[in-house]
Design a protein around this nucleic acid. Structure first.
Length: 116
DNA sequence: CTATTGACCTTAG
DNA sequence: GCTAAGGCCAATA
């Protein structure tokens, strides 16, 4: 499986995000087997071009939208998230109280069983 | 080769 | 709660 390029693994990780859930760039990167490559994830999304890819479920570590407020991508992402049942307020996603969040997000009600 | 930039992250004030 | 600074990695000029 290591033959797949980083981009392919990142896309796969994003596609693995369940409906109504959100994930952070750093977390996606880690899940893709690329710790510390959060920026690479952003770069891939910037040039994705795949509509079947739930890129709108990828947010920053603060649960905030990566796009600047008022921007087109920002509004679109917020709208898409709301359409999936995710509460978005002031450009940020309603997230449960937790530590750095990066290890928490995901599942709207239950956390995925996974190794740290 | 060095410098700049980017849908980032973390720690500190 | 928000702002500022440092760090990290990859692509591009």
């Amino acid at each position: 499986m290591a033959d797949l390029s980083a981009e392919a693994r990142i896309l796969a990780a994003i596609r693995d995000v369940p409906h109504g859930a959100v994930a952070g760039y750093g977390q996606i990167a880690r899940r893709a087997g690329l710790p510390g490559r959060a920026r690479l994830v952003a770069r891939v999304l910037a040039g994705n071009g795949d509509d079947t890819l739930p890129w709108h479920r990828v947010l920053r570590s603060d649960g905030r939208i990566a796009f600047p407020p008022g921007s087109r991508g920002h509004r679109e992402q917020a709208a898409r998230l709301r359409a999936e049942g995710v509460q978005v307020t002031a450009g940020r996603v309603r997230m449960p109280p937790r530590a750095t969040l990066d290890a928490t997000l995901w599942g709207p009600a239950t956390a995925l069983p996974r190794a740290r």
